[in-house]
Design a protein around this nucleic acid. Structure first.
Length: 460
RNA sequence: GGCGCCAUCGUCUAGUGGCCUAGGACACAGGGCUUUCAUCCCUGUAAUCAUGGGUUCGAAUCCCAUUGGCGUCACCA
């Protein structure tokens, strides 16, 4: 009998900053799995930490997903049957289930209070009687009362059995055994009435009928905690896949300090979203035919959860660069490239005429790794010192070429003569026209620009 | 430190007991093409499969230990 259960997967980003490349990595695998099985890809916003909340961060996540073509099926903006999709709007649910846990003896009220330094302080030492003896207030009768009390100092904490084996099954690594002594009694409901991640994720994944959980490896340690919660509720835990986390070159968790984690950086540099996705797909997974270059559709077609490897990959921007260049020169037509460039340089008017020049565009196509490279190729950028007198001579020589004869062969003939007479080499000419020793094939470039513009440029 | 995960060229990886004196890609080096720089093509350097023990006729592949790396131990996710 085939599994008729609907495939529903999710990512659960928190709106605490810029969209992270690691989130896109997670989104890619979840998205591919959902699409492959005609399931739903869901985005649930985990905004339970009000101290880290960043205005606009949620919207940035959606913009990033759209840019990559990983648009979700259900989320706060595409409300489905399982909403709300923001945890801050689901508080009553967490209160209800926290109460269930208390009623069944799996959670308890504990007294916490800030000390003079403003640090949170646990007065209970895991001993609830002691907590109550030092408390300034009586424990609330129930969750309802707790969340309605102002300046509440009580929290709801889960109760963890002592010295019991707890086995958990990671679909990528296999069975892992923990002792419950290693599971810390997690706070489930904070004093402000908001849930912690752990309560939220268990309740929501269950209520939203998430069928498979693909999440980052750093959650592996809290796996037994979640398993315990599922058991307490009497719910069946969906299969969980812990994917390896992206690493810095020094193997530490990919971070701002060592690498580029902000999706916006990649966009601003002129990376193509499809190239980034292709590169990301190669981390922790490999194409069955060992192909390196493939589309998102092909990835979806070939992707299988069984092929995900547990080894944490280093995110190599150099290889990403190569792949991006490859996409620009092999996967984009001239027209498509033009559209991308026009869009990328929408605020830089001075490159527009170059983008709209077919010949120039062709010349740049094999010389760009990112869209950001384009302006360096076509614009004057002074890096070399130029002999202005010599430059004027070159210009005067070129000026003598008639409008009709202005083509790359005649221009090059002129160059040859000039180089012989002045005893200079090509790089000198390049510097005079572009400011740099190297660049677009000069005769072709000048021919493409036309006599008038070329001469003008030499007059600068 | 406790607990957990991981371990093939610098990096991404192929490899699931014999086809491996370990294959591909990036990077790097050299060469070809060429009017600079690229693209493109060819060649090369690079892993005693972390180390040490087993199991087996046979191990990168299975088992154990060690070492190393990483993760996690919050009223953050």
């Amino acid at each position: 009998m085939a599994d008729t259960k609907k495939i529903r997967v999710r990512i659960a980003p928190s709106p605490t900053g810029f969209p992270h490349i690691g989130t896109i990595y997670q989104a890619l695998f979840n998205f591919a799995f959902a699409k492959k099985h005609k399931g739903k890809f869901i985005v649930r916003i985990e905004d339970t930490d009000r101290t880290r909340f960043v205005e606009g961060a949620e919207n940035a996540i959606f913009q990033a997903l759209d840019w990559f073509g990983l648009t979700e099926d259900e989320s706060p903006r595409f409300v489905g049957d399982y909403g709300p999709y923001r945890q801050s709007e689901r508080l009553d649910l967490y209160h209800k289930y926290a109460q269930v846990l208390i009623d069944e003896g799996h959670a308890e009220f504990v007294y916490y209070k800030k000390d003079e330094a403003g640090q949170k302080k646990d007065y209970s030492d895991g001993n609830n009687e002691k907590a109550q003896s030092v408390a300034d207030s009586k424990p609330p009768k129930n969750v309802q009362e707790m969340v309605e009390t102002e300046n509440n100092d009580w929290i709801v904490r889960m109760i963890v059995p002592k010295d019991e084996k707890i086995e958990v099954d990671d679909q990528i690594r296999g069975k892992i055994e923990f002792n419950t002594n290693e599971v810390n009694p997690q706070v489930l409901l904070k004093s402000d009435g908001f849930p912690t991640y752990h309560l939220g994720v268990v309740v929501d994944d269950h209520l939203m009928e998430i069928s498979h959980v693909l999440r980052a490896e750093e959650w592996l340690s809290s796996f037994p905690k979640h398993k315990l919660l599922y058991d307490y509720f009497g719910w069946e835990m969906p299969p969980v896949f812990h994917t390896a986390t992206l690493r810095n070159p020094d193997k530490s968790k990919l971070s701002k300090r060592h690498g580029h984690t902000n999706v916006e950086w990649y966009r601003l540099e002129g990376f193509l979203p499809e190239a980034i996705l292709n590169y990301l797909a190669l981390l922790g997974w490999s194409h069955p035919e060992e192909k390196e270059v493939f589309s998102l559709d092909e990835f979806i077609d070939k992707f299988d959860l069984k092929d995900i490897r547990p080894i944490p990959p280093v995110f190599d921007v150099v290889k990403l660069m190569w792949m991006n260049g490859l996409y620009i020169r092999e996967r984009l037509t001239l027209e498509e490239l033009r559209d991308r460039l026009l869009n990328f340089y929408s605020t830089l008017r001075e490159v527009e005429s170059y983008i709209n020049n077919d010949k120039v565009l062709e010349l740049t196509k094999t010389r760009m790794e990112t869209l950001g490279d384009f302006k360096k190729l076509v614009l004057w950028s002074p890096e070399e010192t130029v002999d202005t007198a010599l430059k004027a001579e070159l210009r005067d020589g070129l000026e003598k070429i008639s409008e009709n004869d202005w083509n790359k062969d005649v221009i090059f003939g002129n160059f040859k003569k000039f180089m012989e007479e002045k005893n200079v080499k090509m790089p000198v000419l390049y510097a005079m026209f572009t400011g740099r020793k190297h660049g677009l094939p000069l005769p072709d470039f000048m021919a493409a620009l036309g006599k008038k513009e070329s001469i003008e440029r030499l007059s600068l």
